[in-house]
Amino acid sequence: MNKVDWAVYRDISINGLWKSNPGLVQLLGLCPLMAVTTNFVNGLGLGIATTVALVASNLAISIVRHLVREEIRIPAFVMIIAANVTLIEMLMKAYFHELYGILGIFIPLIVTNCIVIGRSEAYASKNPPLQAGFDSLMMGIGFTLVLVVLGGMRELVGNGTLFDQAHLMFGEAARGLTLSLGADYKGMLLAALPPGAFIGLGFLVALKNYVDKRKAQTVKTPQAQPIVRITPAGESA
């Protein structure tokens, strides 16, 4: 057994959650991202389903990666992914039936989600199972975070509520979780419609780029400051 190289896992986490976040940087899987994130719970539901599909498929793909000939790898990957997604769909139908009713076609459509096949092709088919699984998990969590934040934003602006219909996922006890801006708030329909998803995602991408830019600046400034300080009084800019 080789020594576990933690740096690899750290890089995988940073990549999946932030640096090449599927929702914000790779801009993959935009179709479900736009269509489903009308509220927080829907986003969370689809995010978890996608994450499970990602991890299960890429684990399997990584295990069989030496057995699959290069020429037929894409059909083989797609079949593995489709089988996994079908399983997830059936599980959701059984245990989260109402949520399944809302997410509907977007659960089977995880098969076509570019994030899944993209991670298989770019990572799982070239790396050992443990790393591939962890990479999928981080990518899935990164995607879920975007879905949840976007869903929350759209729900808050479009409907004036947050965590509405939480009982679909967490059982009856979660009914009380729903927050509301009050009856006076007139929901902004645009946020709940597809254009709202595009505008919201645009703002999230902009926010991410802004944070990155600020971080890059703060890294630079400590080096620049001492030089300013040692100049004679009156000359410093």
Binding site: K186, L189, L190, P195
Partner: peptide
């Protein structure tokens, strides 16, 4: 247009 889509009543 954004207002008409969002707040058709008002």
């Amino acid at each position: 247009a954004a207002m008409l889509v969002s707040y058709p009543v008002q």
